[in-house]
């Protein structure tokens, strides 16, 4: 009973964190993009425009919810919920500090990937149910892209599992007490970050929601906070990917002077910043280039990397 109470309490904290965090991330993205394009970004609402996204969210709350004609009502209703719930589930296993983890499961890493796989079912449902050809095309592309990049993502994290000998994320962090894995596995880190960018549908991989050709893709027909929930889950997914990259490659909560959770959050937000930087620097790729890049470059590279890691570990042991 005590355990149940602890889980529910931590869930309430996580929900609050997710909602506020995604609003702050949207603000940060607007500020970063403004800096890169020599603008100033949101400025007037609150301190440095910090409250701008809160005001936007409040405005969204007062908008009309539309059911488009001939849409699949049940799927249309369920899609935003189904894309939001799994992203939240991934918070369960992320070790924010030495003992700061809600459920330290022994298959933590697998669970994160399973949940991220579930969330694009929600995206495809949205594309299908909207009764709009742009949405359907966006949903199709989203699934093709996500399943293509899922393989290099898993293969590159497999190197880390081989070195740490565990799927438990806190074990992986503990294995990096002296040397973070990014120094030992630079190629795996690059493959991981590239695939994570593609998995979270961010530029240069934002084909599913390419504004200029698909008019926002799978969420064209969504309005009000239904659209807002897609937005929240996208930004939270970026944050989760950054957290996983931090735990796998950047040494997690290890660092001098400051306490563990401060180091973890600093590293995670730095990765988020890099993701935004990439978005506002690189142009969008074409759909076919994107999928052939996954199959012809990333997958052979990551298979090669796994064999190299296995050989190196085996030779070092002897």
């Amino acid at each position: 009973m005590n355990e149940l109470f602890r889980i529910i309490l931590s869930l309430v904290i996580v929900i609050g964190f997710v909602l506020i965090n995604s609003l702050v991330l949207v603000w940060l993205e607007r500020k970063v993009s403004a800096r890169i394009q020599l603008r100033r970004g949101p400025l007037y609402v609150g301190w440095f425009g910090l409250l701008q996204t809160f005001a936007d969210a409040l405005k969204m709350l007062g908008k009309e919810l539309i059911f488009p004609k001939n849409c699949d009502k049940v799927l249309y209703f369920l899609a935003p919920i189904l894309s939001f719930a799994p992203v939240l589930g991934a918070f369960l296993v992320i070790p924010f500090g030495q003992h700061l983890v809600i459920q330290d499961l022994n298959i933590g890493l697998l669970l994160v990937f399973a949940f991220s796989g579930l969330s694009f079912i929600g995206i495809f449902m949205a594309g299908w149910a909207s009764n709009n050809k742009y949405s359907l095309l966006g949903g199709m592309r989203s699934v093709a892209q996500n399943i293509s990049y899922e393989i290099p993502l898993l293969l590159s994290s497999l190197n880390i599992v081989m070195m740490a000998k565990s799927f438990r994320l806190s074990d992986i962090v503990r294995a990096q007490a002296h040397v973070p894995f990014i120094l030992l596995q630079p190629l795996a880190f690059i493959i991981f970050i590239t695939s994570a960018l593609a998995e979270s549908n961010r530029t240069p991989f934002d084909i599913p929601e390419a504004e200029s050709e698909l008019v926002a893709g799978f969420h064209t027909e969504y309005s009000g906070l239904r659209f807002g929930i897609f937005f929240i889950s996208e930004y939270t997914y970026v944050f989760i990917s950054s957290c996983v990259a931090t735990a796998l490659f950047l040494g997690g909560s290890h660092g001098p002077f400051l306490s563990g959770w401060a180091w973890f959050l600093m590293k995670a937000y730095f990765v988020v910043f890099v993701v935004m930087w990439v978005r506002w620097t690189l142009p969008r790729l074409r759909s076919d280039q994107l999928i052939t890049f996954a199959w012809k470059v990333l997958i052979p590279l990551s298979l090669f990397n796994i064999i190299c890691t296995a050989l190196a570990l085996q030779l070092l042991k002897q």
Binding site: I7, I15, L61, F84, R226
Partner: peptide, 21 residues
């Protein structure tokens, strides 16, 4: 529990919009 809770929160947000909008 996580799944039920997350679905509940998302549903609540949508419900709020349908009242206020």
């Amino acid at each position: 529990i996580v799944f039920a809770f997350a679905a509940f929160v998302a549903g609540l947000l949508i419900f709020l919009t349908s009242i206020l909008g």
